[in-house]
């Protein structure tokens, strides 16, 4: 499949295709072959690229890749397609934290005007004798908390709604 990396605020689409014993690199309408990485352990390897051999040092931190090649350091981020599409979705439409099931509010941790980051705890709610945490689906400023402690709500109800961050 086509993969994408971010590097210096640019996005590069590329993919590998298998060669005889190595790979071919495709990007920007170019094909570079062969490419191969050998002896890579402890963050060090030899990159073969079109009959040139280059020493590479690297460190991988999740989707972020730190590379040292030809005396220079480069930081790339692997852009997982599914997550990027999901993120755009979250940013585009999730203006509310919704109730995944009916329940009763146990505690409210935010109030109107609070700036929250994605994943912040908004409420504790109880449902079917289980307590669970309602988290912010996106970052933003709390616009309204729709239920107070002790109030009950239905599945799908908007519990907390957000507005865009204050300028």
């Amino acid at each position: 499949m086509r993969h994408s990396f971010a590097l210096n605020a640019e996005s590069y689409e590329l993919w590998l295709s298998p060669g005889q014993r190595d790979y071919r690199l495709h990007f920007g309408g170019e094909v570079i072959a062969p490419v191969a990485l050998s002896h890579h352990f402890n963050g060090s390897g030899m990159l073969e690229i079109a009959s040139e051999t280059v020493s590479v040092r690297f460190a991988i931190d999740g989707d972020v890749l730190h590379l040292h090649i030809h005396g220079r350091t480069h930081i790339l981020r692997y852009r997982d397609q599914l997550r990027e599409f999901d993120l755009s979705e979250v940013l585009a439409s999730h203006d509310a934290a919704q109730a995944p099931m009916p329940g009763v509010v146990v505690a409210v941790r935010v109030s109107r005007g609070d700036a929250v980051s994605p994943g912040a705890t908004l409420m504790l709610v109880e449902s079917m004798k289980l307590e669970f945490v309602v988290r912010a689906p996106r970052g933003g400023v709390v616009d309204r908390v729709h239920f107070e402690v002790g109030e009950s709500f239905e599945q799908g109800a908007a519990l907390v709604t957000f507005s865009d961050e204050r300028r």
């Binding site: 499949m1 397609q81 599914l82 599409f85 999901d86 755009s88 979705e89 585009a92």
Partner: peptide
């Protein structure tokens, strides 16, 4: 899926 490309990415996955 949010768009066709997204749908295709899901299908591939």
């Amino acid at each position: 899926a949010t768009c066709e490309k997204h749908a295709i990415a899901i299908a591939r996955d």
